[in-house]
Every structure is written in C-alpha cells, then in structure tokens.
Simulated assay, not measured.
Amino acid sequence: MWTHIVLLIVLSICVITDLKNRKIYNIVIFPAMVFAFLFHVLSDGWAGLGFSLLGFTLGLAILIIPFLMGGMGAGDVKLLALVGALQGAEFVFSAAVYMALIGSVMALAIVLFKDGIRERLQFAGFILICLRFRIRPNLQGYWTTGAYPYGVAIAGGAAVCLWLKGWGAG
C-alpha cells in the first residue's frame, strides 16, 4: 500500500510539472527510487531487491530505445523505471501497454486538434502515396518536430494498472 501511495504522489507531481514545464524532475524521481529499493529490501530482503531491480530494469528497457533515438526525454525513462522499481516487472509491463495506448490517443488528438489540420492531412496523404510507390520522402522539419508530455501517458498507464489490479494488491 505504501508503494501505491508514493507512486500516486510522484505521478501527480510529474504530470503537473510535465504539463507545465515539459520536465520530470530528478528531485522527485530519485528520492522515490531510494524509497522503492529500501522498502522492498526491508520488507522482503534479497527477494525484494530482486523484485525492485527487475521492475526498474524492465521499465528502463521499455523506453531506452525511444530515448536514444531522440523521441523521449530522460525524465520519462526514469519515471517508468521508477514505476517498475515500486511495483515490479509484471506491473510495469502492463502499465507500459496502457501507456502506449494513452500516448497514441494523445498523439492523435494533438495531430487532429493542433493548428494546420488540413496541411497535416495532406501530408499524411503524401506519405501514403510515397509508401505506395516506394519513394523515400524527406521527413525532416515541421512535421517531425514537436514534443508532448509523455509523462502524462506514463502516469495514465500506471493509474489504469493500479485501478484494474486493485488498490490493495501488490
């Protein structure tokens, strides 16, 4: 239960800072990370440490490639790793599935409701034509730039998992 409370507090803070400043701060993540490892070690010894490390590693692994390719911020990677350290590998894997779904809906909404919808639809048609005729278009510039607060999707995925798995579980 304590891990759930810490997780919800951290997720709430990270959603606010990610929406406001597009940042997830280490000052929030690192103390919670220390708590996660200490809590699991003190409650289950070596098995607890293994539980926390496995969750941390899986959370890190899920987002490390998008981060290395420049599509994800380091704060997002650390936040998902924290989710894994607090809740374990099974939880972080499930949360990542919901995170991806929520992130996809967010991206679609941004594309549809951001200025220039007509140009975006024309660009999508252009890409489809290029794919059909195996032409490689130059995708650099306006169409590939822009970020959105993926911490919101991470928090949403973790919150959905907490809700579906039940507050008292874990």
Score class of each variant (00 low, 15 high):
Met1Leu: 15
Met1Ser: 06
Trp2Arg: 08
Thr3Pro: 00
Ile5Lys: 13
Ile5Pro: 15
Leu8Cys: 13
Ile9Asn: 02
Ile9Pro: 02
Ile9Glu: 07
Leu11His: 06
Leu11Ser: 04
Leu11Gly: 12
Leu11Trp: 10
Ser12Asn: 03
Ile13Ser: 11
Cys14Gly: 00
Cys14Arg: 03
Cys14Leu: 01
Ile16Thr: 00
Thr17Lys: 08
Thr17Ser: 14
Asp18Val: 11
Leu19Gly: 12
Lys20Thr: 09
Lys20Gln: 14
Asn21Leu: 02
Arg22Gln: 13
Lys23Ser: 10
Asn26Ala: 14
Ile27Gln: 14
Ile27Val: 07
Ile27Gly: 01
Ala36Pro: 10
Phe37Arg: 10
Phe37Trp: 09
Leu38Pro: 05
Phe39His: 15
Val41Glu: 01
Leu42Val: 08
Ser43Leu: 14
Ser43Gly: 01
Trp46Phe: 15
Ala47Pro: 10
Leu49Asn: 06
Leu53Trp: 07
Leu53Ile: 08
Gly55Ser: 13
Gly55Ala: 11
Gly55Asp: 06
Thr57Asp: 04
Leu58Val: 15
Leu58Ile: 13
Ala61Trp: 10
Ala61Asp: 01
Ala61Cys: 09
Ile62Tyr: 09
Leu63Ala: 02
Ile64Asp: 04
Ile64Cys: 04
Ile65Leu: 15
Ile65Lys: 06
Pro66Met: 12
Met72Ser: 05
Ala74Arg: 13
Ala74Cys: 03
Gly75Asn: 05
Gly75Asp: 01
Lys78Ser: 07
Lys78Trp: 10
Lys78Tyr: 05
Lys78Phe: 08
Leu79Thr: 00
Ala81Asn: 03
Ala81Pro: 10
Ala81Ile: 02
Leu82Gly: 00
Leu82Asn: 03
Gly84Cys: 04
Gly84Thr: 08
Leu86Arg: 09
Gln87Asn: 07
Ser94Val: 15
Ala96Ile: 04
Ala96Lys: 00
Val97Trp: 14
Tyr98His: 12
Tyr98Leu: 04
Ala100Trp: 12
Ala100Ser: 14
Leu101Tyr: 12
Ile102Arg: 06
Ile102Leu: 14
Gly103Pro: 15
Leu108Gly: 14
Leu108His: 05
Ile110Gly: 03
Phe113Asp: 05
Asp115Trp: 05
Asp115Lys: 15
Asp115Thr: 09
Gly116Leu: 10
Glu119Ile: 03
Glu119Val: 02
Gln122Lys: 13
Gly125His: 11
Phe126Gln: 13
Phe126Gly: 07
Ile127Gln: 07
Leu128Lys: 11
Leu128Thr: 01
Arg132Lys: 14
Phe133Lys: 15
Arg134Cys: 10
Arg134Thr: 09
Ile135Gly: 00
Arg136Gly: 10
Arg136Tyr: 14
Asn138Ser: 12
Leu139Phe: 07
Leu139Ser: 06
Leu139Glu: 01
Gln140Thr: 08
Tyr142Val: 06
Trp143Val: 05
Thr144Pro: 01
Thr145Ser: 14
Thr145Phe: 05
Thr145Trp: 09
Thr145Leu: 09
Thr145Gly: 06
Ala147His: 13
Ala147Val: 00
Ala147Pro: 01
Ala147Lys: 15
Pro149Ala: 12
Gly151Leu: 09
Val152Pro: 03
Val152Trp: 06
Val152Lys: 12
Ala153Thr: 08
Ala153Arg: 11
Ala155Gly: 08
Ala155Asn: 06
Gly156Asn: 08
Ala158Pro: 02
Val160Phe: 06
Leu162Phe: 10
Lys165Ile: 06
Gly166Met: 10
Trp167Met: 04
Gly168Thr: 03
Gly168Ile: 00
Ala169Asp: 00
